[in-house]
């Protein structure tokens, strides 16, 4: 009996620990005065300020636009890659490719970040290509998203009933037709999951974005980083609240999908 209560209290404490900071952020987004020490009154003004702040809105815009484009491109490249890799017979080449795929995931963020940054700057110096900016930011995001897509799609491929592609070809289908009509419908849930994971990874990214962006293009994470070093900004709190709601929503969505699948 005591055991049960202790474990319940313990769980409660941990969840409190996990959520208290978030709720504090949310709480003080409604606070009248900027300073932390008192609760001075309920207001929504910081939310309005948030939408009026060009810098923040731009950061939000770039965050989402990069996430959307990068996740879509990564999903296309990753899905095709997963199928191609799945079809390969076991060989040194296949293992090598699978290992290369894991590199961005296995490396610390900062190493991937400086590697890409150095590469872009170096090439830019020699060939005036890959100037740091939107393009390089996008490329970086696609690069770290692809492994997640491949990792989401491959299990679905392995689960496909044996011989279905051969059966389709036996019935006269070209490889592309078989892909379209047999493989794609089967792995579709994996593709969507991969897309959502990639999207979320992009939205949240800081380190890689920090190093590979340029021309004043920021995302939310970079913005918070620069603001935080300056001081408290209730607009950031308001932003946190909105993001929290978005994340909850996305997660419930994904949860419903995995239940269906």
């Amino acid at each position: 009996m005591v055991k049960k209560h202790i474990s319940r209290i313990y769980t409660g404490l941990i969840f409190f620990f996990l959520y208290a900071p978030i709720f504090i952020l949310i709480l003080f987004s409604f606070n009248e005065k900027k300073n932390l020490t008192k609760i001075s009154g309920f207001t929504l003004k910081w939310y309005f300020e948030l939408f009026k702040d060009r810098q923040i809105m731009q950061a939000i815009y770039y965050t989402f636009i990069i996430a959307i484009i990068a996740s879509i491109i990564a999903t296309i490249i990753g899905t095709l890659a997963a199928i191609g890799l799945h079809n390969r017979k076991k060989s040194k080449r296949k293992t090598a490719l699978l290992t290369i795929n894991k590199i961005p995931m296995m490396s610390p963020d900062i190493v991937t970040a400086i590697a890409l940054m150095s590469f872009f700057i170096y090439i830019n110096q020699k060939f005036s290509f890959f100037e740091l900016g939107f393009g390089t930011l996008l490329i970086a995001h696609i690069t770290f998203n692809i492994p997640y897509v491949i990792l989401s799609v491959m299990p679905k491929l392995k689960q496909m009933p044996l011989n279905t592609v051969e059966a389709a070809m036996d019935l006269g289908a070209s490889q592309f037709y078989a892909f379209r009509k047999v493989v794609l419908p089967e792995i579709f849930p994996g593709i969507i999951t991969g897309l959502l994971i990639a999207f979320t990874m992009s939205i949240d990214d800081f380190v890689i974005s920090f190093f590979t962006t340029g021309h004043g293009i920021s995302n939310i994470s970079i913005l918070v980083f620069s603001s935080a070093r300056v001081g408290i900004n209730p607009k950031i709190n308001a932003l946190s609240t909105l993001l929290f709601i978005t994340v909850m929503f996305l997660l419930i969505l994904i949860n419903k999908r995995t239940k269906k699948v």
Partner: peptide, 21 residues
């Protein structure tokens, strides 16, 4: 899901929160 939600909150905002605390 309760454990996962904080994971998906922006990493910087979570750290920023501790600055406040």
């Amino acid at each position: 899901m309760l454990v996962v939600v904080p994971m998906w909150m922006n990493f910087l905002l979570r750290t920023y929160a501790w600055l406040l605390i």
